[in-house]
Design a protein around this nucleic acid. Structure first.
Length: 563
RNA sequence: GCGCUCGUAGCUCAAUUGGAUAGAGCAUCUGACUACGAAUCAGAAGGUUUCAGGUUCGACUCCUGACGGGCGCACCA
C-alpha cells in the first residue's frame, strides 16, 4: 500500500515534470498536506510564486481524492483530502497486515552491530542505549522489508584475560561462580589486578597466562571458554528479560586468525606502512584524518581494536554480502569509525557503513551515571528495579488480578518504561536517568500508551459477539476524523524513523495517536452508540489497537490485555 | 590547539531535515468521575529558540564568530 504522501508526490511530479515533495501540514487549518514547490520554482526562475502555484494547480490531477486546491501564504499549495477518501483508506487498513507501512522499494541486506558487552564484566547502564536502540532499528528495518542480520560483537578477547585466568587458578570460589558467575569473575579480575599493583612478580605471571592463552595453551583456553560460556548465561538472562534476540554473536575472538594475514596483506599492498614500529594506515589525502592514522598493529606485535573491526567488516561483506552495516555505538567513538570506514574504502570494499552514535546516560548529578561507590550501575539491577516498581503500582491499582498476571504485567510495564524512556528521546542528547520520570505513569510514557491499548481491549471484552469489519466507515464527529487521519499517518511515520535512525519520531507518533484516541474515547461512546456509527467506531478502536501494538512492537515494547 | 556534539517554556524534551502563529509532557491554575478502565479528558498560563552578525520570499534549522556543557585527538577496547 503506498502512502497518501507518495500518491500526492507522484501526481504533483506528473504535473510539474520533475520530482516534487509533499509534506503533512503542521496545522489543520492548512489542510492535510502541503507543498512548497511553487516557491522553490519561483526562486530558480525569479518569478512570482503565487503565479506559479496558480498555474500548477490547473495541471495537478488529484480531484479524485482531494477537495479543490488552495493557494495560501507566500505560495503554498494546500491539499485537503475528501472525507470519503479518508474513510475508504482507513477501512483498507483493516485488511493490510502492514497497517499502511510500505515495503522498501529496494530491500537491503543490513548487518546491525549493537549491544556488544564484555565477557567477565557485568552489563551496565552504558549498554542500555546501544542494546535498545539497535534492537529497535532491527525491528523497524525488518518491518520495512529489509533483510537484517543482528550481530552481537562481544568483547571476548583482550589483555584482561591474563588477570582473570590468574585469579581463576589461584582464588576461584566454585560456589560463588555457580551462584553469580559474572560477579565472581569480576572479583577474580579485581583481586588479581590489586595484587599486580603491589607485586611485579604477579603482574609478570598474569602476562605469562595471557601469552599462554594467546599461544593456544589447552588449560588456559579451557578457562577462557568457561568464562565466555558463563558470561553468556548472564547476557542471555538480560536479553530474555528485554525480549531481544541476535542472529549471530561472533565475538572478537572469532577474528583472531584473520588479523595477522590481514595486516600482512595491507602491508604488502602498500595500504598500510610501518611508522615508529607500529603498522598504520595513513589518510594523507583526507584533511579531517590527515594527522590521524589508524593503528592496526602495535610495535610489540599485538593487534588493536581497529584491526579486529576491519577484519569484521571484511567478513561481513564477504560472507553475507551486506549492503549496509550499522554500528550502534556511543558518540565518543566517532573518530574510530571514521578511520576504519576510510580504511575499508581504501581496501576497496563496498558497503554503506554507518556509525549510529548516541549520547550518555547521566545520573541525577548530571554526570555520567555511577553508583555511590563510583562503579557502573548494573543492567540487571536496573531491570529488576523497574519490574519491582511496576509491580508495586499494578498491585495497588488493580489488586484483583491474579498474582502471576500481576508479575507478567509488571515485567511488560517496567521493561517498557525503561525502553520508552530511551527511545522517546533524540539519541544524541544526553539524558538524566530518573526512575520517577520513566515510571511516572503519566504523560509521554510507555504505560500511557499501553493503557490506551488496554482500554480498547476492555471495550472488545464487553462487546457481545465478535467484531466483524464493516463494509464502509461512517465518520461524522471531528474526533473520529482526527483519529482516522492519525491512523493513516502510521505508514508515513515508520519509514521516516529510519531516515536518520530516529525511533523517537515513532515514539512521538504513538504518543500522539494515544492522545488522539483518548480524546475520541471521551467524545464518542462506542458501545452505547448504534448501527453504522457503532460499527465504524469499533473499526477505529480495532485499528488503533493494532497500530499501537504494532508500533510499540517495533520499539520492542509489549502490550497486555489488562494492567 | 584541532575536531565532533549539544544549547528551545521553571524542569524534561519535540519540531516532518529551509516553511505558515515554535509544539508536548511534568510542575502550577480552572473544570469533568454512582466510569465503554480518571494510569483519563477539556481548558488556562508559561518563549528575544545562549549571544552577535550573515544568506532569502521565509531560519530553531544553513554560513561566520563568540559563550557555555559533554566527548574525542598513535600503540586500551
Amino acid at each position: 500500500m503506498t502512502t497518501i504522501q507518495t500518491l500526492l508526490e507522484s501526481r504533483l511530479s506528473e504535473a510539474l515534470g520533475a520530482p516534487a515533495q509533499v509534506s503533512a501540514t503542521a496545522d489543520a487549518r492548512f489542510g492535510d498536506y502541503q507543498t512548497n514547490v511553487a516557491m522553490v520554482q519561483a526562486k530558480a526562475q525569479r518569478a512570482n510564486p503565487r503565479k506559479i502555484a496558480a498555474e500548477l494547480i490547473e495541471r495537478i490531477n488529484v480531484a479524485d481524492f482531494c477537495e479543490p486546491l488552495e493557494i495560501a501564504g507566500a505560495g503554498f499549495i494546500n491539499f485537503r483530502l475528501k472525507p470519503e477518501f479518508v474513510a475508504q483508506r482507513t477501512l483498507a487498513l483493516l485488511g493490510d497486515a502492514q497497517l499502511g507501512v510500505p515495503k522498501a522499494e529496494k530491500p537491503q541486506k543490513i548487518v546491525i552491530d549493537f549491544s556488544s558487552p564484555n565477557v567477565a564484566k557485568p552489563m551496565h547502564v552504558g549498554h542500555i542505549r546501544s542494546t535498545i536502540l539497535g534492537d529497535t532499528l532491527a525491528r523497524i528495518a525488518r518491518f520495512l522489508g529489509h533483510e537484517v542480520i543482528t550481530d552481537n560483537h562481544v568483547g571476548d578477547w583482550g589483555t584482561q584475560f591474563g588477570k582473570v585466568i590468574y585469579g581463576w587458578k589461584h582464588f576461584r570460589d566454585d560456589a560463588a561462580l555457580e551462584a553469580d558467575p559474572i560477579h565472581e569473575l569480576v572479583r577474580l579480575y579485581k583481586e588479581a589486578n590489586a595484587l599486580c599493583d603491589s607485586n611485579p612478580a604477579i603482574l609478570a605471571e598474569c602476562r605469562e597466562e595471557l601469552v599462554k592463552l594467546q599461544a593456544g595453551d589447552p588449560e588456559n583456553l579451557g578457562i577462557w571458554k568457561n568464562t565466555v560460556a558463563l558470561s553468556w548465561k548472564e547476557f542471555e538472562a538480560m536479553y530474555n528479560l528485554l525480549d531481544i534476540r541476535f542472529d549471530e554473536h561472533l565475538g572478537e575472538s572469532f577474528y583472531n586468525d584473520d588479523l595477522g594475514p590481514l595486516v600482512d596483506r595491507l602491508l604488502s599492498s602498500g595500504i598500510a606502512e610501518v611508522s615508529e614500529g607500529a603498522v598504520c594506515i595513513f589518510f594523507r589525502d583526507l584533511p579531517a584524518l590527515a594527522d590521524k592514522p589508524a593503528l592496526i598493529r602495535k610495535s610489540d606485535g599485538g593487534f588493536l581494536y581497529a584491526t579486529t573491526d576491519l577484519a569484521t567488516i571484511e567478513y561481513r561483506i564477504k560472507r553475507w554480502h551486506a549492503d549496509a552495516i550499522w554500528y550502534v555505538v556511543g558518540a565518543p567513538q566517532a573518530l574510530h569509525f571514521e578511520q576504519i570506514f576510510a580504511a575499508t574504502r581504501r581496501i576497496g570494499l563496498e558497503a554503506n557503513l554507518k556509525h549510529i552514535p548516541f549520547g550518555s546516560i547521566l545520573g541525577e548529578d548530571r554526570k555520567l551515571m555511577k553508583t555511590r561507590s563510583g562503579e557502573n550501575v548494573g543492567l540487571r539491577d536496573v531491570l529488576e528495579e523497574a519490574r519491582t516498581r511496576a509491580l508495586k503500582i499494578v498491585a495497588e491499582k488493580n489488586p484483583g488480578l491474579p498474582e502471576a498476571e500481576q508479575q507478567e504485567i509488571a515485567r511488560v510495564i517496567g521493561i517498557g518504561a525503561v525502553k520508552y524512556a530511551e527511545l522517546s528521546q533524540f539519541r544524541m542528547s544526553d539524558y538524566v536517568f530518573s526512575w520517577d520520570k520513566m515510571l511516572s505513569f503519566q504523560g509521554n510514557t510507555a504505560p500511557y500508551l499501553q493503557n490506551a491499548y488496554v482500554r480498547i481491549q476492555s471495550i472488545f471484552r464487553k462487546l457481545e459477539g465478535k467484531f466483524t469489519p464493516p463494509s464502509a466507515l461512517t465518520l461524522s464527529e471531528p474526533a473520529e476524523w482526527a483519529l482516522a487521519k492519525k491512523l493513516l499517518a502510521f505508514g508515513e511515520t515508520v519509514p521516516e524513523t529510519l531516515g536518520d535512525f530516529r525511533p523517537n519520531l515513532l515514539a512521538n507518533y504513538l504518543f500522539e495517536l494515544a492522545n488522539t484516541f483518548h480524546s475520541f474515547y471521551e467524545a464518542c461512546p462506542v458501545l452505547k452508540s448504534e448501527g453504522a456509527v457503532r460499527e465504524s467506531r469499533l473499526a477505529l478502536c480495532e485499528l488503533t489497537a493494532r497500530v499501537l501494538r504494532s508500533g510499540l512492537g517495533l520499539l520492542g515494547i509489549e502490550t497486555t490485555e489488562r494492567m
